[in-house]
Simulated scan of single mutants.
Amino acid sequence: MKNKLKPILITIITILAVFMTGKYVLDTLFGDMCGNDIVQNVPSPNGKKVAYIFTRDCGATTGFSPQLSILDKDDKFPNKSGNTFRSDEKFTIGWIDEKKLQVFYDKKSETYKMDRSVNGVRVEYVGK
Rank of each mutant, 00 (worst) to 15 (best):
M1I: 09
K4P: 07
L5K: 11
L5C: 08
K6C: 09
K6D: 04
P7T: 00
P7C: 08
I8Y: 11
I10C: 07
T11D: 06
T11N: 09
I12D: 03
I13G: 02
T14Y: 04
I15F: 07
L16M: 13
A17E: 15
A17W: 05
V18E: 05
V18K: 05
M20T: 13
M20L: 15
G22F: 07
V25L: 14
L26K: 14
T28D: 13
T28L: 14
G31L: 03
G31S: 06
M33D: 13
M33Q: 13
M33C: 06
C34L: 07
N36C: 04
N36Q: 11
D37V: 01
D37E: 15
V39M: 08
Q40E: 15
Q40A: 14
N41D: 15
V42Y: 05
P45N: 10
P45I: 07
K48I: 06
K48Q: 09
K49C: 05
K49Y: 10
V50A: 11
Y52N: 03
I53D: 00
I53C: 03
I53K: 05
F54V: 01
T55Q: 14
T55Y: 13
R56W: 05
D57K: 12
D57R: 13
C58G: 05
C58D: 03
G59F: 06
A60F: 14
A60C: 06
T62F: 08
G63T: 02
G63Q: 12
Q67N: 05
L68V: 06
S69A: 06
L71A: 01
L71I: 00
D74G: 10
D74I: 13
D74H: 12
D75A: 04
P78M: 13
P78L: 12
N79T: 14
N79R: 04
N79S: 13
K80C: 08
K80E: 09
K80L: 13
S81M: 15
N83I: 11
T84I: 03
T84N: 06
F85K: 09
F85Y: 09
R86H: 11
R86E: 14
S87M: 07
K90G: 10
K90N: 15
F91Y: 07
F91P: 00
F91H: 00
T92V: 11
G94A: 15
V103A: 10
V103I: 13
V103S: 04
F104D: 08
Y105C: 05
K108N: 12
K108Y: 06
K108P: 00
E110W: 07
E110H: 09
K113L: 15
M114C: 02
M114V: 08
M114D: 00
M114F: 02
R116V: 08
S117Y: 09
S117Q: 12
V118H: 01
N119L: 03
N119E: 09
G120I: 12
G120C: 08
V121Q: 01
V121S: 02
R122P: 05
R122E: 15
R122T: 14
Y125D: 04
Y125F: 12
V126L: 15
V126K: 13
G127N: 15
